[in-house]
């Protein structure tokens, strides 16, 4: 079992000299160019950067969805860049929750079933999985749409289902790629509240986003450009007086 080989000490995620190249010759793209990253347990990390800077690629590599061209990826003390597909799948069901940029819901499953799928795969009992799915959908404001197929949901609703799905197996790390890209302000607040609650359970969160408001829930913000990290900001609490920001003081 992979869970046995996952250590409960040290960083949740770590990369070393991570490189990813697509294509070859003149079509060569250096999507990631030597990324060094360490994410502590329970930490929330935001990754921002212009389109095409390699954010999604980084997330995919962190979750073992693709193999790096070079470098190491460690998840909870286990090196995963060389693992086989089967071992990776086992690892993911145990330790990783994904929110894809393109949602990637299973068209043939209802919203509720999409959400409970990772839980079922992770070995949760059907009853518990169903309960958890209902609870998560409720928290993203979709309790009334549980029985709908994705084709009957709006873009924002699909995105919220995707977020709920990423949390259903109670993963060690949640990797969220633009989890609020299609949401209005209120739905964004719902999703952010849900993601922020991971802090209480000590889960690690990596969010890729274009939205500073989403990044603001992180402990640390990393900016990427052309496949590398260009800036790292620690977002400390209590920066600026709230009443001043709200226009109550002047």
């Amino acid at each position: 079992m992979p869970s046995e080989s996952l250590s409960s000490l040290g960083p949740a995620l770590r990369t070393h000299g991570l490189r990813m190249r697509y294509g070859q010759g003149t079509g060569l793209v250096n999507a990631l160019d030597g990324v060094e990253l360490e994410v502590a347990r329970g930490e929330t990390l935001a990754v921002m950067g212009p389109s095409g800077s390699g954010k999604s690629t980084l997330l995919h590599l962190l979750g073992g969805l693709e193999r790096p061209s070079e470098g190491e990826v460690w998840l909870a003390g286990r090196r995963i860049d060389g693992l086989g597909e089967k071992a990776l799948a086992r690892l993911r069901r145990q330790a990783v929750g994904f929110v894809f940029q393109a949602f990637h819901l299973m068209d043939e499953l209802t919203a509720e079933e999409n959400v409970e799928l990772p839980a079922l795969l992770a070995g949760m009992s059907p009853r518990a999985a169903r309960r958890r799915a209902g609870e998560l959908l409720d928290r993203v404001g979709l309790a009334g749409r549980a029985g709908h197929l994705p084709s009957a949901l709006s873009g924002g609703e699909r995105q919220r289902v995707a977020v709920a799905r990423a949390l259903s197996n109670e993963p060690l790390v949640v990797l969220a790629d633009e989890p609020t890209g299609n949401l209005d302000s209120a739905a964004t607040a719902d999703v952010l509240r849900l993601l922020d609650s991971l802090r209480e359970t000590g889960q690690t969160l990596v969010i890729v986003t274009h939205d500073a408001r989403v990044a603001a829930i992180a402990d640390r913000l990393i900016s990427m450009r052309d496949g590398s990290f260009v800036e790292e900001t620690r977002l400390t609490r209590g920066g600026g007086r709230l009443s001043e920001l709200a226009g109550l003081e002047g």
Partner: peptide, 16 residues
């Protein structure tokens, strides 16, 4: 193909 890749991304093994 897409569905099965997706299921694998969510932790389904190739065997499943």
């Amino acid at each position: 193909r897409r569905s099965s890749a997706l299921a694998r991304a969510l932790g389904a093994t190739p065997g499943q």
